[in-house]
Design a protein around this nucleic acid. Structure first.
Lengths: 114, 114
DNA sequence: TTCTTATACTACGATAGACATAGCAATGAC
DNA sequence: GTCATTGCTATGTCTATCGTAGTATAAGAA
């Protein structure tokens, strides 16, 4: 069990992305690398998961996208910017995380079941 | 956000059930009530979720079922008993939880994003 | 006596987030 | 000239959870 199964983090990918967009807009590839780095390689988001998360976040009004045509490699990038609704949603997820943690830990043996 | 959405707990229902079967066999309705009580009403597992979890757990060899024909109300109950593989799986999930918690918390603002 | 509540499930189809696989296109390193 | 890196998009599959419904018994309220 050296990495995290996606079923557990399910529902928190959106939250992680919003966290990384908090101070400045960013784009897929960069977000992906920052998740990997911040989690110390313990969690690596799949590309399809990431881009489908962006689509969902935008549909829900939590982010707004804009294109930058000029990049280092001449490639098109789609940047995402968090909205006020996105910040509100993030706050709710933080509160929910606290609650979730409390509940789950009632079912976790501290000694790991020895 | 007074209760927990199931997408977050997804993948941990099995773990919660195994925890409750640790010391003695039990059955659906009882497990359901114990989850509700232990979580202080913060999490109420849906019946269909619970029974499909039992089926999955048995298919994976983590529990074994047996029937008790005589019950208080004359109704049939299916009891489930945790297996050694089930205990092992539970231990792995405990370890995974620790890791998951560490990772997720890197993306959670302590001030809740104020 | 009829109705509701609690008990104890089973069946079936829908939903949605995550994933596998594949493809496209440009640049720089070797 | 091939490979790795960058930066996406398309399409279909998987599966845990959920919504709805049905079945059946017993106790207690109306």
């Amino acid at each position: 069990m050296s990495s995290i199964s996606s079923d557990i983090i399910r529902g928190y990918n959106d939250t992680m992305i919003l966290y990384l967009l908090w101070d400045a807009p960013s784009y897929g590839y960069e977000i992906s690398k920052r998740i990997k780095n911040l989690s110390e390689e313990k969690y690596v988001i799949k590309e399809t998961t990431l881009y489908s998360a962006f689509t969902r976040l935008e549909k829900n009004g939590f982010v707004e996208s804009f294109s930058e045509n000029v990049t280092i490699n001449g490639k098109r990038r789609t940047y995402y910017k968090i909205t006020e609704q996105g910040r509100q949603y993030y706050r709710e997820k933080c509160a929910e995380w606290t609650l979730t943690k409390e509940v789950v830990e009632k079912f976790i043996k501290q000694d790991g079941g020895i």
